[in-house]
Simulated scan of single mutants.
Amino acid sequence: MEARRIYHELTEGLTRPLRAEELVYAAPGLPTREDVGAEAEKAQKDKAGLEIAQGAFLADVLADPACGRHLIESMLAPTPPALAHAAAFARDGEVDLGRAHVQRHGNVGVVELRNPRHLNAEDDTTLAPLEAGIDLLLGDKATEICVLRGGVVDHPRYAGRRIFGAGLNLTHLYRGQISYLFFPVRDLGLVHKVFRADKLWIAAAETFAIGGGCQLLLTVDHILCERGTRLTLPARNEGIIPGAANLRLPRFVGDRRARQAILSGSELQPEELADELVEPGEMDAAILARAQALSTAGAVSGGANKRAFRVGQEPLDVFREYMSVYCRDQAVCYFSPALIRNLEENWRAHDRTP
C-alpha cells in the first residue's frame, strides 16, 4: 500500500509524530501549499478540487491499523500554541487566545468559543485557538472538570446572549475561505480530544447548538442545555457529513431518530440530548453545581469510568475506520456542485456579506 510506505518514511518508522495538516504537505505527489494557497483565493464553486487528493491520502493512512493509530495519537498531542501558553495559564489561570478564551475557577476550567461577529460559527480562524484552549485545560494539573461554552455575541438579534455554536461559517465556506483540512483536523483534533480525554467534560449549551456545536455535545460527559435551545445537524442542507455525528448520535437517540436528524434535517429537542434543562439566566449556577457533583467521586474515579464507557462505545479502531471513510467522502462532498446549490438554495449564501 503506497500510503503505508510513505507514512512509514515520513514518520521514520512510526517514531515521529506528524499532524494531518503537516502530513498532507510532506507527502509526495499531493498538492503543494502553493497549489492550495492559489485555490484559496477562489470562491468554492470555482475551485478545482485539488484537496480531494488530501482526503484520499488521509483515508488510506487511517485505513491501515498501525499508521492510522499513530496518526490519531499524533493528533491527540498538545498543539504548539497550547504549549506556548501552558506556563502562563498555570500561573494566571486565564489565557485569551483570540477566538477562544480559557479560564480556571477553582478546579473547574472553562474554554469559550468566541467568534461574536458570526454567532460563534466555526471556521479556519477558530480551529487552532479552540483546540489550544482544550489542550490547556487537559494539560493543567489544577483543572479537574472541564467546561465547553460559547461566548457572548454582539449580533443585534442576540446581543448580550451566549451562543454555544452556530455550526460552520457558511458564508466563509461559500466564498472559499474554509479549507478542506478544517474537517479532518477538527475531528481528529479538538473534537476527539474532548471525547478521548480522561478528564470529565460538561457542555453548557445556550441559545443554539447547530452543526459542529451539536457534534461537540455528543462528546461530553454531561450536557447542560438552556431551555429553548435549538439543536440541529443541518449537514443535508449543506451537502456534507456532520463530523462524527453519524457514529455518535445513534447512541443518544437511536438509529432511526439519528437518520431523521442527519438525512432529513429533523430538529432535535433539548430533552433528547440534555442531562439537565436549565432555565434562562441560571447556567452559571448550574455549571458550578454539576462540576461540584462530578468532583465528589474524585478525578481518578471519573477518568476510570469514562475509559470504561469508551471501551464499549467507541474503541479507537472503530473511530479510526470511521475517520477513514469520513476523510475520503467529506472531500468529495466538499467539492461537489451540489454543495454550492444547497448553499444558494437553503442559505442564500450568494446574498450574504462576509
Rank of each mutant, 00 (worst) to 15 (best):
L218N: 04
L216Y: 01
T229H: 07
A258N: 05
L263G: 10
R196K: 14
A245V: 09
F195P: 01
P270G: 04
R230I: 14
L233N: 10
A203C: 06
L188P: 11
P234V: 12
A209M: 04
D198I: 03
L217M: 11
R230A: 15
I223R: 05
V220I: 14
L200W: 06
R259P: 04
A209P: 06
I210W: 00
L218Y: 00
R230F: 10
R230P: 01
V220H: 08
E238K: 14
A261K: 06
F195W: 12
E271M: 13
E206W: 02
A205N: 11
V191D: 15
D221S: 10
P250N: 11
P242W: 00
L247N: 01
L249F: 04
L224K: 04
I210Q: 13
L249E: 11
G189Y: 02
T232L: 06
A209R: 02
H222W: 09
P250L: 11
R259Q: 14
R248M: 09
A205H: 03
P250G: 11
P242S: 12
D221E: 07
F252A: 07
Q215M: 08
L249H: 03
A245I: 08
L233V: 09
D255C: 01
L200R: 08
P270R: 05
G212I: 07
E206F: 00
G189E: 06
G243Y: 08
G211D: 06
E206Y: 01
A209Y: 00
L247M: 13
S264H: 11
L233E: 09
P270Y: 06
E206K: 03
R230K: 12
L216D: 10
R230W: 10
G254C: 05
R227T: 15
V220C: 12
G212N: 04
G212L: 09
S266E: 12
P270M: 13
Q269F: 08
A244L: 14
D255W: 00
D198M: 03
A261E: 04
R230M: 11
V253I: 13
K193M: 04
H222M: 03
G239S: 09
G213K: 02
A203N: 08
L268F: 11
A245Y: 01
E238Q: 15
A209V: 02
G254D: 08
L233C: 10
D221F: 09
Q260N: 13
E267L: 10
R248V: 01
V191Y: 05
G239V: 09
F195T: 04
D255A: 04
L218A: 02
T219R: 13
P270W: 03
L218G: 11
P234S: 14
A197Y: 08
L233F: 06
T207M: 02
T219K: 15
A203I: 02
I241V: 13
F195A: 06
K193T: 04
A203F: 02
I262G: 02
V253S: 04
L247C: 00
L190D: 03
F252E: 11
S264I: 01
Q269R: 14
R251V: 07
D255R: 06
A197I: 13
I241H: 01
R256I: 05
G211N: 07
R259L: 02
I210R: 13
C225D: 06
L190E: 01
L216E: 14
N237K: 15
